[in-house]
Design a protein around this nucleic acid. Structure first.
Lengths: 223, 223
DNA sequence: CAAATTCTTGACCATTTGGACAGGTTTAGT
DNA sequence: ACTAAACCTGTCCAAATGGTCAAGAATTTG
């Protein structure tokens, strides 16, 4: 609505101004791509939502595909930031509990990112194949090894570690990807803070218990 | 490829011929919509895949939307057929085990149906709102009541029944919707029969155990 | 302060695509 | 066998949409 160019603080440099424009466009694009998919997304809508003329969007991003890739890259990067390191010496219960709660939080906090990602995978991951095999796969293999060592050490029940990771991914993502269905079934307008909390508690409890684990004692001081 | 009109058996009536054509189109459309989403799907591609001229598709289906709705309806109907009835007197472990295995089977057998459905929900379920509130919601409420009665009867651990249903849905659907990611991470070309079986076993075991349940004894004679 | 560089934008275009339509063909009824 | 209805399909078209371009505004630089 308001023209960014005319009412910026004096101290603003060109570089930082550009960053704002780019971010505006990326955020608008993420929303549009998440809601309508790549093919369904409209450059005009993205431009409108970001608050710039369409040609401006094309100035900063060569074409629709490169804009989409930029959005994906941004999501994937933020995703990777969430990935915490775990070690053989850690307590399985604590690690899994933390992992689950972080994933749940991500789903509730950034549903459009989650949906865009899901969309890309459902459609065969045409733009993410490389990232999956070079980043995600090593990550999974690494965690699998640690979980397996816990099992070997008798610290938890014997369950297939990779499928356990898939299970955690799926159950947590579900609340973002299938939000519309869940809200209708539960007759809610939107997720409440309480619902989020109970969901995290539920998932943590059921999954840990499914692995034969229990949290040490105190477990309610997470954000 | 071959023209259906010219080489049909004499006994074939017009009605059944039409059914074949319609089915061909619906199947082609399901695949195309699942792979590319509604906006990305091309009528020309659907027609080609079905083996008829595009105008023929438009003869049987008013427009793209009505074709899409027909595909959705077909999927939803088949989905509903899977829904088994459960009662308070049943053994929770057996019911949940059966339920999980049926859902897993559906995901592996009809991945494109699952993906199309997921796609619709991710994009806000514009065409399924009614079905969700009139069919799915009552179904869920019904199962929730039964599960709750099991909990009250001390037959299983106290877990939120609705979230348990969501969890089963998400974990089973995951293998269809995120197939491309899973195949890359597990370095498989396609799901093997063995992988399907182990997945069903894994999910059943972990979820039952998460509910404090164990299967009676014999549990390996399912299809 | 002038020139050069970067950024912005309205107007315009080429292509794609859903869909209309009219004329032809096959089937069912009598 | 003949007619009417149902079905099929090649051709064409209007609308939508991604993308271009050249001129103008703002900012940096020499």
């Amino acid at each position: 609505m308001t023209l960014r160019t005319s009412n910026l603080p004096k101290a603003d440099t060109r570089a930082s101004h550009i960053e704002i424009v780019i971010t505006d466009i990326l955020e608008a694009a993420q929303e549009e791509f998440a809601v309508n998919g790549f093919a369904g997304a409209r450059m005009q809508v993205i431009a409108d939502r970001a608050g710039y003329p369409k040609a401006n969007v094309h100035y900063h991003f060569k074409n629709k595909t490169s804009l989409y890739l930029a959005v994906l890259d941004r999501i994937v990067t933020r995703w990777d930031d969430y990935l915490n390191d775990i070690s053989v010496d850690d307590d399985p219960a604590v690690v899994l509990d933390t992992f689950i709660r972080e994933k749940v939080q991500f789903s509730f906090d950034e549903p459009s990112a989650s949906r865009l990602f899901a969309n890309e995978i459902i459609h065969g991951a045409p733009h993410l194949r490389k990232h999956i095999s070079s980043q995600i796969r090593p990550y999974v293999i690494d965690r699998v090894a640690v979980i397996q060592s816990w099992i070997d050490a008798g610290k938890m029940m014997s369950v297939d570690p990779m499928r356990l990771i898939f299970l955690i991914w799926s159950t947590t993502q579900h609340y973002a990807d299938f939000q519309s269905q869940i809200l209708i079934v539960t007759k809610q307008k939107k997720y409440t803070q309480e619902y989020r909390q109970e969901t995290a508690d539920f998932l943590s409890k059921l999954i840990l218990s499914g692995c034969g684990l229990t949290l040490p004692s105190k477990n309610n001081e997470l954000t």
